[in-house]
Computed example of a mutant assay.
Amino acid sequence: MREPNSSPVAYVEGNEVADGFPGLVPVRDSKVPDGPCLVIAAPAWTAFVAHAAHPTASSVG
Protein backbone atom coordinates (compact mmCIF):
# COMPACT_ATOMS: atom_id res chain seq x y z
CA MET A 1 0.00 0.00 0.00
CA ARG A 2 1.60 3.22 -1.06
CA GLU A 3 0.67 6.37 0.78
CA PRO A 4 0.60 9.47 -1.42
CA ASN A 5 2.85 12.30 -0.29
CA SER A 6 4.04 10.34 2.77
CA SER A 7 0.58 10.35 4.32
CA PRO A 8 0.33 9.06 7.87
CA VAL A 9 -0.69 5.48 8.53
CA ALA A 10 -2.67 4.43 11.60
CA TYR A 11 -1.93 1.06 13.20
CA VAL A 12 -4.99 -0.72 14.59
CA GLU A 13 -4.67 -4.22 16.07
CA GLY A 14 -1.99 -5.29 13.58
CA ASN A 15 -3.58 -3.51 10.64
CA GLU A 16 -2.45 -0.39 8.84
CA VAL A 17 -5.02 2.16 7.73
CA ALA A 18 -3.67 4.70 5.25
CA ASP A 19 -4.74 8.33 4.97
CA GLY A 20 -4.70 10.52 1.87
CA PHE A 21 -6.96 8.53 -0.46
CA PRO A 22 -10.07 10.69 -0.94
CA GLY A 23 -13.24 8.63 -0.53
CA LEU A 24 -11.32 5.41 0.19
CA VAL A 25 -9.77 3.69 3.20
CA PRO A 26 -6.99 1.23 2.31
CA VAL A 27 -6.32 -1.39 5.02
CA ARG A 28 -3.63 -4.08 5.15
CA ASP A 29 -2.00 -6.48 7.59
CA SER A 30 1.03 -4.72 9.08
CA LYS A 31 2.82 -8.06 9.38
CA VAL A 32 2.62 -8.57 5.59
CA PRO A 33 3.58 -5.18 4.11
CA ASP A 34 3.82 -6.54 0.56
CA GLY A 35 0.55 -8.44 0.88
CA PRO A 36 -2.88 -7.52 -0.43
CA CYS A 37 -4.72 -4.36 0.52
CA LEU A 38 -8.44 -4.15 1.20
CA VAL A 39 -9.89 -0.86 -0.07
CA ILE A 40 -13.12 0.22 1.61
CA ALA A 41 -15.39 3.14 0.67
CA ALA A 42 -15.05 5.89 3.28
CA PRO A 43 -18.77 5.93 4.23
CA ALA A 44 -18.72 2.15 4.81
CA TRP A 45 -15.56 2.49 6.94
CA THR A 46 -17.19 5.25 9.00
CA ALA A 47 -20.26 3.09 9.60
CA PHE A 48 -18.09 0.11 10.55
CA VAL A 49 -16.03 2.12 13.04
CA ALA A 50 -19.17 3.67 14.56
CA HIS A 51 -20.73 0.24 15.01
CA ALA A 52 -17.53 -1.23 16.44
CA ALA A 53 -17.35 1.60 18.97
CA HIS A 54 -21.04 1.43 19.97
CA PRO A 55 -22.74 -1.83 18.94
CA THR A 56 -26.42 -2.17 19.74
CA ALA A 57 -28.63 -5.22 19.93
CA SER A 58 -30.91 -3.81 17.23
CA SER A 59 -28.05 -3.53 14.72
CA VAL A 60 -26.89 -7.13 15.07
CA GLY A 61 -28.08 -9.36 12.23
Rank of each mutant, 00 (worst) to 15 (best):
G14M: 09
V49I: 15
S30L: 12
A52F: 02
V60A: 06
V49Y: 08
V32S: 14
P36I: 02
G61C: 04
V17E: 05
P8M: 05
K31C: 02
I40H: 05
T46W: 01
R2T: 09
P8Q: 10
M1A: 15
A44T: 08
P4Q: 00
V39P: 02
A47T: 09
D19R: 09
P26E: 13
D29W: 00
E13Y: 10
S59Q: 09
P4C: 00
V17P: 05
V25C: 13
P43Q: 14
P33H: 09
A10Q: 12
A52D: 08
A42M: 08
P4V: 05
P36Q: 10
R2G: 01
A57C: 03
Y11W: 13
A57N: 09
E16A: 11
I40P: 03
D34E: 13
P33R: 05
V9S: 09
L24W: 12
A52W: 11
H54E: 13
S6N: 13
N15P: 02
E13D: 15
S58K: 11
P22G: 03
D19I: 05
P36N: 03
P4N: 08
A52I: 02
H54R: 15
A50K: 13
P26F: 12
E3L: 06
A52R: 11
H51E: 13
V12W: 05
E16G: 14
E13K: 12
P36T: 09
N15T: 11
V49W: 09
A42H: 14
H54F: 09
